[in-house]
C-alpha cells in the first residue's frame, strides 16, 4: 500500500505530500504528517479532543486554514493530536474533531516547531483519489 504521507525537503523548511482515497482523507493524512514532524505519533495518547471548524475561499486555502488551526492549538494550548475525524467536508469549509493530549515532557520528545502552513507550493489534487501538498515554515 502507498504511504499516507511523505516529507518534502526544502532548503529552509519542510513540506508534506499526503495521499488519500479522496481529498478529505488526504487532509487527515496531512495533519498526521504535520504532527509527525513535531513528535512521534505513537507517543500521543487519545485523552481529549478539540472540535475544529474552518472556512476559506477555496480548497487550497482550506487546507492551509485547517493546518494553521491545528498549529495554533498546539502553540497556544500545547495540544498534540494523532487522530482526526473530518465530519463535514465542503470545498470551502470543514468541521472536524481532533483527538490527542497536551504535551507531557516526560513522554513526548518534541522535535521541531512549526510556525505556520504557507501558501507556497500549496496544492490540492483530486485526480487519483486525493493528493495534497503543503510547505511549512519551521
Amino acid at each position: 500500500m502507498a504511504k499516507d504521507f511523505e516529507l518534502i525537503e526544502h532548503t529552509a523548511d519542510v513540506g508534506i505530500m499526503a495521499y488519500g482515497a479522496d481529498v478529505k482523507e488526504a487532509f487527515v493524512n496531512t495533519a498526521r504528517g504535520m504532527f509527525s514532524l513535531i513528535v512521534e505519533l505513537e507517543s500521543i495518547r487519545e485523552v481529549e479532543h478539540r472540535d475544529i471548524e474552518v472556512t476559506a475561499p477555496d480548497e487550497e486555502s482550506l487546507l492551509a486554514a485547517w493546518l494553521n488551526e491545528l498549529i495554533c492549538l498546539f502553540d497556544a494550548e500545547n495540544m498534540l493530536f494523532s487522530r482526526f475525524e473530518i465530519r463535514e467536508f465542503e470545498d470551502t469549509s470543514l468541521r472536524a474533531r481532533a483527538y490527542g493530549e497536551t504535551v507531557d515532557s516526560s513522554r513526548h520528545k518534541l522535535k521541531v516547531g512549526i510556525k505556520a502552513a504557507t501558501y507556497h507550493m500549496l496544492e490540492v489534487d483530486r485526480n487519483d483519489g486525493g493528493r495534497v501538498q503543503v510547505l511549512f515554515d519551521v
Binding site: P57, A64, A65, N68, I71, C72, D75, A76, Y119
Partner: peptide, 17 residues
C-alpha cells in the same frame, strides 16, 4: 514567537482574499 506567527497567518489569509 507565536504572536508574530499568527499575525502573519491571519493577514496572509486576509490579504489573499
Amino acid at each position: 514567537r507565536g504572536l508574530g506567527h499568527q499575525v502573519c497567518t491571519d493577514y496572509v489569509a486576509l490579504l489573499g482574499r
